[in-house]
């Protein structure tokens, strides 16, 4: 990327000022909260040490990560097929992929609930063999999986589309099966997109509330816990939990952003 001296470019300066407004809004909100929370440090420490809060944060992040692992196993093959083939009805498949993106989260929650509840189409038979989604960890995972899938699939697909078909063709004439060509050429070259897609969808999964409470109010993910404390304990209690969650998310995503610089970087001047 060319380094343009920003201060000498009027267009960039005005763009930065406009763009700064949106950042300013977020920063203002964060600062506002930080100042409030830091004014009562003993309270902050007490909430932070509350094992319910810690458990809930860990549960939320773990369930999100779990959903993303399943999403990668199922979503990567789908993304590749969408990137490399053209078939009748492809537009319909693409729309199905995007549906969770457009639906209100409560609607997504109902869809998931009806399918995975104890009497549901999938939930029913699984409940009979002792596997419950209602008010259980798997319910959280499946709700997160549903709402975050479009982010991952579309990002992976974009990555696959960026890999020139010629590279895959050459790999095949050199003796690689389609799967080997995928494994050795396409996947490494789209690793960044897959990684970024995974981070976005993880973030989306962690942030979910409505879809999750419909199938699994318990165990409480952080949004549920926050909402519960807000309605029972009031603003002071809940805003401190929010603050802790913000700190946790900010640090985790900052680290992941840094790591992304080391993933799938290659010189694509060829």
């Amino acid at each position: 990327m060319a380094q343009i001296p920003v201060l000498r470019d009027r267009c960039l300066i005005s763009f930065s000022l406009l763009g700064g407004l949106i950042l300013a809004l977020t920063v203002l909100a964060l600062m506002n909260m930080t100042v409030r929370e830091l004014s009562d440090i003993p309270h902050l420490l007490r909430v932070a040490a509350d094992s319910k809060v810690i458990d809930s944060i860990i549960l939320t992040m773990a369930a999100g990560a779990n959903a993303i692992v399943i999403l990668m196993i199922l979503g990567i093959p789908l993304a590749y097929v969408l990137a490399r083939t053209d078939f009748r009805g492809k537009r319909i498949v693409e729309t199905i992929v995007d549906i969770p993106l457009m639906l209100p989260h409560t609607v997504a929650g109902i869809l998931v609930y009806i399918l995975f509840m104890k009497r549901g189409l999938i939930g029913g038979p699984l409940y009979d063999i002792g596997f419950s989604f209602e008010d259980a960890y798997p319910g959280i995972v499946v709700a997160m999986l549903f709402v975050s899938s479009p982010y991952f699939i579309n990002s992976a697909r974009e990555g696959f589309e960026k890999v020139p078909v010629h590279l895959e063709n050459v790999a095949r004439t050199l003796g690689a099966s389609r799967f080997s060509a995928f494994l050795h050429v396409v996947l490494p070259l789209s690793a960044r997109y897959i990684y970024n897609g995974a981070i976005f969808s993880w973030g989306r999964a962690i942030g979910e509330f409505a879809a999750i409470i419909m199938i699994a109010y318990y165990p409480m993910v952080i949004s549920t816990l926050l909402y519960y404390r807000f309605t029972t304990g009031g603003l002071k209690e809940s805003s401190t939990i929010a603050f802790i969650m913000i700190i946790a998310c900010f640090s985790v995503f900052l680290v992941l952003r840094y790591l992304s610089h080391f993933i799938g970087r290659h010189d694509d001047r060829v």
């Binding site: 020139p164 010629h166 590279l167 063709n169 050459v170 790999a171 050429v185 490494p188 070259l189 799938g264 290659h266 010189d267 694509d268 001047r269 060829v270």
Partner: peptide, 8 residues
Amino acid sequence: QDYSLFPH
């Protein structure tokens, strides 16, 4: 024509 070397 574009050689299509594997960039990675």
